[in-house]
Amino acid sequence: MKKSELIERLAEKFPHIAKNDVEKIVNGIIEKMIDALNNNDRIEIRGFGSLFVKTRRGREARNPKTGKRLTIESKRIPFFKAGKELKELINKNG
């Protein structure tokens, strides 16, 4: 499922809301989630899971091919942890 399909399916479930508006809402949710992660805030969706950012420290490393030293800068990586309900449901039906 892509974002466009998600919008379509939502629009079907909320026939009293114009599809344009559903699109706006979906984009609003996604933007808010991205903003939160960018601010290092955690997103916690009951029943679904949580998204959060971890920071990897920078480190000195070596290029294994050339043996040259190089600095790997610190970086932020987003993670997802499935919620209890999702974990249970996914293991229920085969």
Binding site: I34, L37, N38, N39, N40, V53, T55, E73, S74, K75, R76, I77, P78
Partner: peptide, 9 residues
């Protein structure tokens, strides 16, 4: 985005 704004972290 997360890479470019890493000072936040």
């Amino acid at each position: 985005l997360l890479k470019e704004n890493k000072q936040i972290a």
